[in-house]
């Protein structure tokens, strides 16, 4: 076991974890870009995905694929419900009010999940076996490949959707200027709802696909949400590749921090770097961005 082999394992593990953060970060970015809201409840939709998956798979004994689809649908429906019941009725929404309401929402969702499903941790089976795959002196699980594949797929689909479909263009218009978008006939409210649908669905997908590796319970959303949020910030809140790169960077930093510096302080290392990025390049590492954020 030489050092280069160790290093390649750190990198590979980091990328795998980073892909998870990226998937979650994308959800933050989508809602932020079309509504200007930082949805602190995003992590809870990741949790809902995993828990609905477990619910349909282990309790109702559905086949994995069916459980997966149903779980995403249920979580997306919860996302829409959240928007309709908590975000839309908010008149004269201030950014602060929105922060509080999404925090309240996340506590509520977590609480309901705890009451309905209990406090136990659950695991889903891996999608295609547990046999490790060797790669450049390091090992990965097939499930990691699923995660990478899903990340790539989502970037591509996102890109196509936002560039070429009318709904995607409308969402982008809302991101630039909501009032102007309203004036040219875009139903801004529907777009806001749609972005919640999209983000919660994607969050749920991420939640299901990581559940076989990381387990899931009613309270996994906090930490995963926080990491996803960091990924999105590092990536400059972009809808696509920026956030993904942000997530991957975060994951690699964590793995290297744990392996080479100190496992106890690995999150501190990550956050110090996050602060430095914010201080030096507040528009994110991967976007040229406007200077509005400073």
């Amino acid at each position: 076991m030489d050092f280069s082999q160790q290093l390649s394992q750190y990198l590979l593990s980091g990328l795998a974890t980073g892909a998870i953060y990226a998937l979650i970060g994308l959800g933050f970015a989508i809602i932020y870009n079309s509504t200007g809201i930082i949805n602190f409840a995003q992590g809870e939709f990741v949790m809902l995905g995993g828990m609905f998956g477990v619910y349909f798979y282990t309790i109702h004994q559905l086949p994995l694929v069916a459980a997966l689809v149903l779980a995403v649908l249920c979580a997306a429906a919860s996302g829409v419900m959240f928007e309709r019941l908590a975000i839309r009725p908010l008149r004269r929404a201030t950014p602060l009010g929105l922060v509080i309401i999404t925090i309240g929402g996340s506590i509520l969702v977590r609480g309901i999940a705890m009451l309905v499903w209990g406090k136990d941790t659950h695991a889903l089976p891996t999608f295609s076996g547990d046999e490790p795959i060797a790669l450049a002196g390091a090992t990965l699980l097939p499930q990691h490949l699923w995660i990478f594949a899903l990340t790539v797929l989502l970037i591509v689909v996102n890109k196509l959707f936002f560039q070429y479909t009318i709904t995607g263009k409308a969402l982008r218009a809302c991101a630039v200027n909501q009032r102007a978008a309203g004036l040219v006939g875009i139903d801004v409210r529907r777009m806001v709802m749609f972005s919640f649908l999209l983000a919660s669905g994607m969050g749920a997908l991420a939640g299901i696909i990581v559940a076989p590796l990381t387990m899931t319970s009613y309270d996994v959303g906090i930490m995963l949400g926080l990491k996803g949020f960091c990924a999105a910030i590092i990536g400059g809140m972009s809808n696509g590749i920026g956030t993904v790169l942000g997530g991957l960077l975060l994951g690699v930093l964590e793995a290297l921090g744990a392996g080479l510096i100190s496992s106890g302080y690995k999150d501190a290392v990550t956050f110090v770097i996050l602060l430095l990025i914010l201080f030096l390049r507040p528009q994110g590492l991967f976007s040229s961005g406007e200077s509005e954020r400073v």
Binding site: F271, L275, L278, P282, R293, V294
Partner: peptide, 21 residues
Amino acid sequence: KLKGHYLAMATLGFGIIIYIV
């Protein structure tokens, strides 16, 4: 120097660093 949720994120990060220490 930061504003809005970037400020929120930075202060949150600071809080987490202290907590970890």
